[in-house]
Design a protein around this nucleic acid. Sequence first.
DNA 1: CTTGCGATGTTATCACGATTAACATTCAAA
DNA 2: TTTGAATGTTAATCGTGATAACATCGCAAG
Lengths: 202, 202
Amino acid sequence: MNQSVAPYHHGDLRNCAITAAAELIESIGSYDITIAQVAKRVGVSSPALYRHFKDKDALLTAVRELAHIGIMEYTTDAQDSVAPGTLAHIDALGSAYLRFAMDKKAFFGLMWENHGDAEERRAEARAKRTGFQVLHEAIELYLRKQRPESVETSLQTATLLWSAAHGIATLQHNRLLDTFDHDADAEAMLRTATRAILNVNV
Amino acid sequence: MNQSVAPYHHGDLRNCAITAAAELIESIGSYDITIAQVAKRVGVSSPALYRHFKDKDALLTAVRELAHIGIMEYTTDAQDSVAPGTLAHIDALGSAYLRFAMDKKAFFGLMWENHGDAEERRAEARAKRTGFQVLHEAIELYLRKQRPESVETSLQTATLLWSAAHGIATLQHNRLLDTFDHDADAEAMLRTATRAILNVNV
DNA sequence: CTTGCGATGTTATCACGATTAACATTCAAA
DNA sequence: TTTGAATGTTAATCGTGATAACATCGCAAG
């Protein structure tokens, strides 16, 4: 039997719409999409989508979740060939973050957009926790080995490193990183920042 | 005589529109404004604005310039009571950046929006140069005194510090900074990052 | 001083995109 | 089978960016 039979009028429109929206965003390289475009891609009328999403923002929020999953994949893949708790491990995580920002520009931009209410933000943050947690654990492990006296500040260190990575990624994403330093290299910068931050008591 | 006489039909609609847009953005705390809203605020019809701006984005670009001026004011004020080339000087600049991001949320968000073409970006970058230049000079001066062997890397150091400040500011701006570290304090984080980065060879 | 053009404004009008309303179809349970 | 809930469709509303066509105002040339 065909596994993916359409159980209803369309099938699971909700999921198809999210996927279609994501594909659309990826293909045009911008999250400035239209309900009509998504509907057409799924082969359904625009209003049909409102049976599954309160409004356009709700659809985008769903796509954002996909983006979070995507960044987690990058993170997970990055850990494949590195020893846990090493500097290389932390570098790999940072590198994955930067790579995601550049590979999936539109998604990266979308996931930090400031729309929606605080509630949604919390929910998304919860989803993100996994990714941050990975970084936090890597740092904690590293500090335990290399700077045991700083282990207690691992959370602050992780937050600071995240901020640094986020700043570099954001500036590069907006093509501003090399505005002044023509040779600015995101990855190199993050490595430098990582080493600087790990060697300080937060 | 009344100083601010309207020399023409309206007066200088262009400038009034920019100001009105800025006020509007500030008052609603979002740069998601409407041509009609701006027009109404100035007491003019919507199409009139198109005599002075190619399109909505052109108006927002003009507002962005105001935002850059605003951040420069913060920067300048920050230097008032600090000795040039000291760590306190650099801290003050970073603090000003963070403060601007929080005080003028909408403007901060607007100025890093990824719209418009590359040309505009270049122009804006040029305007920004002043602000970055101040930071760069402060860092160069500091390094010359404290770590002369690292002076040659001052540009990279400044770029890295900017990135760190930008990351912290951006995350706080999106209310995400304290997602994991409940007690995260932007200013304290930046001070830590500053010290870490300044003590490393880039 | 008048005329006429260019700069500015105004009022229709469009086209589009987000929603909602009103109506139609299908699944599933009684 | 019948019927209501779920899910779709088409028609219609509204807000918004943008352009067209028409109206004014200020100034420079005669």
